[in-house]
Computed example of a mutant assay.
Amino acid sequence: MPERDTATFPPEQLSAATPGSTPELLHWLHQQLQAGQREASLLQSLRDTGWTDTVAHQALKAVVQWRTSQAQAPCAPTPLPGADLTRRPCLLDAGDRQVQVLMCMEQPHILLLGDLLSPDECEAIIAAAQPQMARSRTVAIRTGGEEINADRTSEGMFFQRGETPEVQRLEARLARLLRWPLANGEGLQVLHYGPGAEYKPHHDYFDPAEPGTPSILRRGGQRLGTVVVYLNEPEEGGATYFPETGLRIQPRRGNAVFFRYAQPQAHTLTLHGGDPVLRGEKWIATKWLREREFH
């Protein structure tokens, strides 16, 4: 059966006709089948995470039937966040300021932006975040919760959307620049890396094969894009590194790098990490963009 674009899949409609299921469960099953997972394995995964046999079978049956019915239908492109680069602009309109286009790579899609934030805005975000900093956690992909990860040796915190004037302005600029609803963004995460701290290479999307993914997707669907905003400049080290392309982006205060991934798969070439800080410290703010409204 031809692969289907997840943007055309109607989880809400199927959920209404499948008692006990959720749109997130049905969307996850669709992604699993698209990735080649076997039906028996999916049923066992659902049992392991607490779904009843009745709901598991009905949900899987509904998704399989829909995919079969759509096998011959034309595929529509997946809506993705991204700036309008059709005329290869040097500047982009962020609403209340002009933002520089410093670099753009097509595969993977990576966009380096200059002067997204002013120095004063960077300092204000750091100052507001400092009292709330704690050892950074990552999403626990097997349970859907959070956990300490040895690969991520930073401190961090999350702002609620629009929590401070500076956060509100940054989110509004990103929504305009990347043509993506503000409500589809997770809360802004601020991270602090001291000497020796790093984040080893990883993907930002949620692996469809992990049993905790359905519960994560309930809050707004899959991640589609990442924005890393540099709030200061370490003296040495701390670059954002894409090992599959060999690209390293040095932190410059007020600049930001955006990259996206149309599918939660390694072929998007969006494996990335944060090099160890060798001297000084690094402050960044990270914004993840979801398929749907994040709550």
Score class of each variant (00 low, 15 high):
5 D>F: 02
6 T>P: 15
8 T>R: 07
8 T>L: 07
8 T>S: 10
9 F>N: 01
10 P>N: 02
11 P>G: 02
19 P>M: 02
20 G>E: 00
31 Q>C: 14
31 Q>A: 15
31 Q>N: 12
33 L>G: 08
35 A>N: 14
36 G>Q: 10
36 G>F: 10
37 Q>V: 15
54 T>K: 06
60 L>N: 03
61 K>F: 05
63 V>P: 05
63 V>Q: 05
71 A>I: 12
71 A>L: 08
75 C>A: 15
75 C>L: 14
77 P>Q: 13
83 A>F: 06
84 D>F: 12
87 R>M: 14
88 R>H: 15
93 D>L: 11
94 A>F: 09
97 R>V: 07
98 Q>D: 10
104 C>V: 14
109 H>G: 10
109 H>E: 12
127 A>C: 01
127 A>L: 06
127 A>K: 07
131 P>K: 03
133 M>W: 03
141 I>L: 12
142 R>Y: 07
145 G>F: 03
153 T>W: 03
158 F>Y: 03
169 R>S: 15
170 L>K: 06
179 R>N: 12
179 R>H: 12
183 A>N: 04
187 G>W: 05
188 L>G: 04
192 H>T: 08
193 Y>E: 05
193 Y>M: 06
194 G>P: 06
199 Y>M: 01
200 K>T: 03
201 P>V: 04
202 H>D: 04
211 P>D: 09
222 Q>E: 13
246 G>I: 04
252 R>E: 11
256 A>I: 00
258 F>W: 02
269 L>P: 10
272 H>K: 11
273 G>C: 10
281 E>K: 09
287 K>G: 04
289 L>A: 02
290 R>E: 01
292 R>Q: 02
